Amino acid sequence: MVEWQVRGVRGATTVTENTEAAMSDAVHELIAELEAHNLFRPEDIVCAFFTVTDDLDAIFPAAAARKRPGWDHVPLIDVQQMNVKGSLKRCIRILIQINTSVDQSAIVHRYLRQAQILRPDLDVQMS
């Protein structure tokens, strides 16, 4: 019998400019990477949390995510990331909670673009 658990999938990315297009592209790229590496579908998602640094306000990341196939019924929320001196700028982070039978240690977290510096220990290459 398969035991389903709620697991967390983390990721982050950055944008070069505070525009709707740049933020939307970054959100779509990040979600596509997380889906590809973890093989989950929108119906497996419990909810997703987005955070953005205080220098990003062109669009809600959740609004961009809702345009993805199947994501229109996923519970999503946006919040502002804590502003810490010297922290990475123009950064979008995500925490997706999914129902899965995969062990937490097998979950692949993705940190793209400049956000790779946040978790270099989790860097994986696309095959």
Score class of each variant (00 low, 15 high):
54 D>L: 09
28 H>V: 14
56 L>P: 03
39 L>C: 14
44 D>L: 01
49 F>Y: 13
52 V>M: 06
21 A>I: 10
30 L>Q: 07
50 F>L: 06
35 E>T: 09
92 I>V: 12
31 I>R: 05
54 D>W: 09
67 K>R: 15
72 D>A: 14
29 E>K: 03
104 Q>F: 10
104 Q>R: 14
33 E>T: 06
20 E>G: 12
19 T>P: 03
19 T>Q: 06
19 T>K: 04
45 I>V: 07
27 V>L: 02
23 M>V: 03
33 E>I: 02
35 E>V: 10
56 L>S: 05
71 W>C: 04
94 I>D: 04
96 I>F: 10
47 C>S: 14
105 S>N: 11
49 F>E: 13
27 V>H: 00
76 L>W: 04
45 I>G: 04
96 I>G: 08
21 A>N: 03
36 A>I: 05
96 I>E: 07
81 Q>L: 15
53 T>H: 00
73 H>S: 12
46 V>G: 03
59 I>D: 07
75 P>G: 01
101 S>D: 09
23 M>C: 14
44 D>T: 02
74 V>T: 03
106 A>G: 11
118 L>S: 03
98 I>R: 14
116 Q>E: 10
30 L>G: 04
93 R>F: 00
38 N>V: 04
115 A>Y: 08
109 H>A: 08
29 E>Y: 04
96 I>T: 12
45 I>Q: 07
75 P>I: 01
118 L>V: 06
31 I>H: 06
24 S>A: 14
95 L>D: 02
69 P>I: 10
106 A>S: 15
60 F>Y: 13
60 F>M: 11
48 A>H: 01
27 V>F: 00
20 E>K: 13
60 F>G: 09
52 V>T: 07
25 D>C: 13
53 T>F: 00
41 R>N: 10
63 A>Q: 08
94 I>K: 09
18 N>Q: 06
43 E>D: 05
79 V>C: 14
28 H>F: 14
87 S>T: 04
79 V>Y: 13
25 D>F: 15
117 I>C: 09
46 V>S: 07
73 H>K: 11
97 Q>A: 09
18 N>P: 04
77 I>H: 15
42 P>V: 06
34 L>F: 02
115 A>L: 10
76 L>G: 10
18 N>D: 12
71 W>P: 05
66 R>H: 08
43 E>P: 00
108 V>S: 10
50 F>Y: 10
112 L>A: 05
72 D>N: 15
64 A>Y: 02
82 M>I: 11
94 I>L: 05
29 E>N: 03
58 A>S: 03
86 G>P: 01
93 R>V: 00
47 C>P: 09
64 A>T: 06
36 A>R: 15
96 I>S: 10
100 T>F: 02
37 H>S: 15
100 T>W: 09
62 A>C: 08
75 P>N: 01
115 A>Q: 08
116 Q>A: 11
